[in-house]
Design a protein around this nucleic acid. Sequence first.
DNA 1: AAATCGGGGCG
DNA 2: CGCCCAGATTT
Length: 415
Amino acid sequence: MSPSRSKPAVGCAESAEVLAETVVAPALQTPSATRGLQRQVLKWYEVAGRRLPWRQSQDPYRIWLSEIMLQQTTVAAVIPYFERFIAAFPDVNVLAAAALDDVLRLWEGLGYYSRARNLHRAAGLVVSQYGGQFPADAVQLQKLPGIGRYTAGAIASFAFDLPAPIVEANTERLYARLLGLQQDVRSAAGQKQLWAFAESIVPTTRPGDFNQSVMDLGARICTPTSPRCGDCPVREYCGAFRLGLQHELPKKPPRATVTAIAELAVIPMRVQQGRRQFLLRRRAAGERWAGMWDAYREETQPEILDALPVSDFQTQHRARVGSLFSADEDQLPAATLERVTQQSGVVLEAITAALQLSYSVTRFKVRLTAVVCKVQQSPRTLPDGWRWQALEDLAELPLSKTGRQIIDWLQQREN
DNA sequence: AAATCGGGGCG
DNA sequence: CGCCCAGATTT
């Protein structure tokens, strides 16, 4: 890092200076180098490009759906979701007409659920404002919820053959190395350079194929930890390769530190007409997991979890999911009992079973204990969002990942 | 500019 | 475990 650059003085001479200082491969941006790179990448793509389900057509709906699913999500994780989703919602009209619950249910497990809510909203807008046809225009596309600069460029180029630039995880890495970009790729200045390069390099003929080819090159050759420069069709243009910096670039900011969290979930159980029911609630708008069903949860202290009557802990599932239970007539902490009663109206008795889970998600490492409790009394009508549910009914409702794990565990105990 | 989103897979 | 993933949106 050069401190002298932290506060630019003024003007245009400055930007040329920054470029010379941070980009070691300015020659890459000559017309002949640009054409050579485009040709090499496309030639490589014909042979080595990935065959992916959303590449079978140029249907903007399928491309849009795949791009939303792929945001911060690996290709391997997306494929089965994409297939199921297309089978259930084959076009934008069907999706727009679907219930949000059904959309969330099919999204369950994929994470970042605001994507599913935005997807559903955007489908409604495409139908109501564009007559069911996606606009063939990156600027218009970017106005739809969930579509940012990258996704707009991807749809515009893949579906409509428009020469729109893209920068995402693969191209960010590839372009940073080609340019020999020394700055943090996440910084505003780094992003500006990457997008400027993306714009300079995207061809007017076959822009969609080109954009997909550079993504595949990033995914298969210009990989994060051990780039296969020996197999790279464009290493002659690569600033990082020339300087032996392929393992140092791209430069990224330090990762967020992991936060440990203890969480307590409480699941009241009652028997109604010979069938077991469990008290759950639907997450409110604005909350995490909005619209999804979940057990009552609260963040707590590790000591509280340690003090619970949860004996015989056993691990299952690669030491991530533990299960156990105790039939002791023990109670939850009074404060927790009060909160459950205050929010749901249900009055609890003893703990009858418990489940311990330990998992990592985003920047959190969570230790979760879920307890099943007997019910002393339930109001005639529950507050808004709360419901007694039989386990079978939850198969069709959207739950968070851990909510589903808890329900699966309850189901297993029944049998 | 920085935080949030709360899932998964791989070495 | 650490690291990364076809990012967008909110604060």
